[in-house]
Design a protein around this nucleic acid. Structure first.
Lengths: 244, 244
DNA sequence: CGCATACTTGAGTGCTATCAACCAGAGTGG
DNA sequence: CCACTCTGGTTGATAGCACTCAAGTATGCG
C-alpha cells in the first residue's frame, strides 16, 4: 500500500510541456533557466493513494507541486488527533509554510494517486540569487498562498455547518477550474470525514449538511461527485448567519 | 477621533536605533542599504486608537510594521458582517497577503494608539532586485507568516470555547514576548468581542470562557490584564477535546 | 459473495447563541 | 462633587444546533 514508484509518462518529462506550466515556476523564467530548473526537479513523480509525501518534524528539503491528484496536509496535536490544515489540487504547491522553520510543520498525504513534482529548495534558492524575477515570482506565490488562507477563515467564520460546507464547496469549485471562475461539476477528492475535520465538524454533521444542501436544491451529489444546480442559492447559504 | 498625526519621537527616526530592528527588515541588510531603505520608510508614524490604516479593496501600495500598539485586520462579508482575520503585535508586519492581488484584501484598524512604519512596496521590490539577501529575508518572512496561520488553525480546530480561548491566550502570550518563550503576564489589546469574533464565538461566550479559566485557576484576569498562573493546566485545557 | 470502508440517518445530550439584565469604569455636564 | 450616559464586560435563562452513540445502507475491492 505504501510503495512509491518513480515512473514517468513521456509527456511529463519537461516543464515546458507541462499543462500547468503557466501556474508553476516556469512562468517566471526564460528557456535557459527552465533547463537549469529541470535539473533539480523530479518531474511527475508518482505517488499511490494514501501515501505520505513528508512527515511533520522531518527536515525540510523540498517543495512539491501537485501535477495530478490531490493532497491533504495535517498537523498532529499533543493528543495524537489530526487536524487537517489544507487540501491541495493540481497546480498548487505544498511545503511553503515550512521554509522558514527548516522542518516540515505538517504531514502531507495523497488523497488519490498523484503526480507530484519535487523541487529541491536549496537549489531553487541558489538559482534565485542570480535571477530576481524568480524572487518576484516566489513572493507573489507566497502572497497568494496567504490570501488563500483567507478562504479558510471565510469557511470557519461561518457558524452553521451548512454555511461552512457551502463556502467550502464554492472554494473548491473555484480552485478546481484554475481559471478563476466556478466549475459547476466537480469531484471531491476527500472524504466526508476529511471535510468535517477541516471544517471543524463531525463527519456525520458534514454528511447531514450535504443532505441539507441537496434538500434545498443547491446541489446534486452522487458520492463525491458534486453538481452545483443553483449557484446563487449556494452563495446565499454560504453567507447565511445563524440568526437569519 | 479619527485624526492621524505624523509626529515622531527622536528615538524613532532611524531603523538602526529601533528596538525591533532585529525582527524587521534591517536584520538582512548592511549599513549602506539601511540608509537607502530608510529613504522610503515613514518611520514611526503615529495612529490614534480606532484609526483605519487601510481599507479592503483599496490599492495596495505599502506594508506596515507595527512598532508599538496593536492592529486588527478584518474582512467584511456580503452581509456587511466583519470577520477578524488577525491581530498584529509589535514587530509584526501587515499587508503581506495583499501583495499578489494588488489591492488590500482586508481592512486594518488600530486597537490602541500605535506607531507604524510604512514601507513603500514598489521601492522595496526595486531594492530587492539588486540584493538577493533581501529576497531571502522576504521569503522567510512569508513562510513564517504562513506558519503563524497555523496558530489560527490550531485555535479554531479546538471545539470547545474554553479550549479555543486557552489556545488563543497561549499564542498571544508567546507572540507578546518576541523571544519565543511564553510571557506569563501580558495585556490583551483587543476586546472580548474581538476575541469572540476571531475565535468564532459570541462575545458572551468568550467572556464565559475567561471566567471558566479563572475558575479552573489557569489564569487571573483584571480587565484585559492577564496573568497565567498555571501554565501546564492552561496547555492541558487548550488541547482538550469535547469528549474528554 | 463477503468483508471493509464510507456514507447516511435517527435519537438524545450538551455546548453555545441569543436575549436580557446587570455591573464597572470613563467621560460629560450640571 | 455627583448624577448621567456610554461602552465594555459579566452573568443568567432559554432555545437551537452540533456532537455522540448507534444502527443501517451503499460502495468498492479481493
Amino acid at each position: 500500500m505504501n510503495q512509491t514508484s518513480t515512473q514517468q509518462s513521456p509527456s511529463e518529462q519537461s516543464c515546458r510541456l507541462c499543462a500547468l506550466s503557466a501556474l508553476c515556476i516556469p512562468a517566471a523564467l526564460d528557456d535557459a533557466l527552465i533547463t537549469e530548473l529541470e535539473s533539480f526537479i523530479s518531474s511527475g513523480k508518482r505517488y499511490a493513494k494514501n501515501n505520505t509525501v513528508y512527515r511533520q518534524k522531518e527536515n525540510f528539503c523540498s517543495l512539491y507541486v501537485v501535477k495530478a491528484g490531490a493532497v491533504k496536509t495535517y498537523i498532529t496535536d499533543v493528543n495524537g488527533r489530526e487536524h487537517i490544515t489544507g487540501f491541495y489540487l493540481p497546480g498548487e504547491i505544498i511545503g511553503l509554510e515550512s521554509i522558514a522553520g527548516r522542518e516540515y510543520l505538517e504531514t502531507a498525504v495523497t488523497l488519490a494517486d498523484c503526480h507530484l513534482c519535487k523541487i529541491d529548495y536549496a537549489q531553487l534558492a541558489q538559482l534565485r540569487k542570480n535571477n530576481s524575477s524568480l524572487s518576484d515570482w516566489a513572493i507573489n506565490l507566497f502572497s497568494q498562498s496567504l490570501a488563500s488562507g483567507h478562504d479558510f477563515f471565510t469557511c470557519l467564520s461561518q457558524h452553521t455547518a451548512v454555511a461552512r460546507l457551502a463556502t467550502f464547496l464554492l472554494i473548491i469549485s473555484k480552485r478546481t477550474s484554475r481559471t478563476g471562475d466556478y466549475q459547476l461539476d466537480f469531484s471531491l477528492p476527500m472524504s466526508r470525514q476529511d471535510i468535517g475535520n477541516y471544517l471543524g465538524l463531525a463527519s456525520e454533521t458534514s454528511s447531514r449538511a450535504f443532505s441539507k444542501l441537496v434538500e434545498q436544491q443547491c446541489i446534486e451529489k452522487k458520492n463525491r461527485q458534486i453538481r452545483i444546480t443553483d449557484f446563487d442559492k449556494l452563495v446565499a447559504v454560504s453567507s447565511m448567519s445563524l440568526s437569519t
